[in-house]
Nucleic acid binder design. Structure first.
Lengths: 188, 188
DNA sequence: CGGTTGATGTCAGACACTGACATCAGGTCG
DNA sequence: CGACCTGATGTCAGTGTCTGACATCAACCG
């Protein structure tokens, strides 16, 4: 047995999610989160750069999966095909996480600071996607535009998905959003 | 003559911009900004909800102009035409502000917290635009997608515009980005 | 067995932000 | 004119976030 209980980081994430659900983000102090996880405030900050980050860790399955999906995507002459593939891969990471996603989104939506952090993470997704497209030979500003557009599709579809109490098919929602997007941008 | 020097808010904005330029956002305290403006820290917080807000006031010409442009836009069957009109109006607000925009962007880009706040403001633009489109009869998710897309065009064009040392034509850059976007999303 | 490592604890402090109350020029009303 | 109110500001005390510096001590390593 180690000197400390294992998985300190995971315990902090759990404790935070539980407390935020009970009383809301602002009404919980970092010291409380750490205490519930059997740790101190200082240790919390060794695992997360700030209080919000416990809900948006860089080691997020979404973030790592997103980056991996871009690397795995085959070369394609049409950037939006790459984007569509990445979105499909991302959808897979949400399978079985519908209830968790709904809880989390409720916490985030209830607080401006958390919505703020979420916006940043989405912007980061966009930048990562654009960079991946450029490495595949897509030139600017096409790469940035395709990336922004892809993330827009993700945002819209994900919002629909978590709004539905029943766990629907996120991949399908994204596919439909993409079709809708083409109709909107290209006119009829 | 009034009891206090007039335009306290403007003095705070100026003092903040000057200090941020000299030493960077993090290295400046709110007390310093207030001191330079001949006021106290507490008064700063009566004008701005937090330290970052002094660079992103809700009473921004961009924000108010953006909202007005949406209201003024005529009804149109094609949502992207409305978006294009709004973008054109927005471009007008940046005329003559190229140097200021460059300085400001340098400060913002140098700091993660400020980039974070900027992402929020852009998200707010997107939401406002989507709401305006819905009031014009555009249905979801088309309204959100058109709005996100429009803001994506704005972001890309604005980034190009401030990256150029010479003051170019932001409206023209937006027009080109929109054309590029259509090419990207609709394929060839 | 002695030295190193690494996750954690302890402590002090800077700074962002807030609530409560005081101040006081200028306007209002009787 | 004088009492009163208003609103922007000042003062002060406090909470909470986040950081740097240093201590601790089990586990591992040579």
């Amino acid at each position: 047995m180690g000197r400390w209980e294992p998985n300190a980081r995971g315990r902090l994430e759990e404790a935070a999610m539980a407390l935020f659900n009970e009383r809301g983000f602002e009404q919980v102090t970092v010291a409380e989160i750490a205490g519930r996880a059997g740790l101190t405030e200082r240790t919390f900050y060794r695992h997360f750069s700030d209080k919000r980050e416990v809900l948006f860790p860089d080691s997020n399955p979404l973030v790592t999966g997103f980056a991996a999906a871009i690397e795995d995507a085959p070369q394609s002459a049409v950037p939006m095909e790459t984007v569509a593939l990445v979105l499909k891969a991302v959808a897979a990471f949400f399978v079985g996480r519908h209830e968790y996603s709904r809880q989390r989104q409720a916490v985030v939506n209830a607080n401006a600071e958390l919505r703020e952090r979420e916006a940043v993470k989405l912007a980061w997704l966009s930048d990562t996607l654009a960079e991946g497209l450029r490495r595949r030979g897509v030139t600017e500003p096409g790469a940035s535009l395709a990336a922004e557009t892809g993330v827009a599709v993700f945002k819209v579809a994900h919002a629909q998905w978590v709004a539905d109490p029943e766990p629907g098919d996120l991949g399908e929602l994204m596919r439909l959003a993409l079709i809708e997007l083409k109709a909107v941008t290209c006119g009829e």
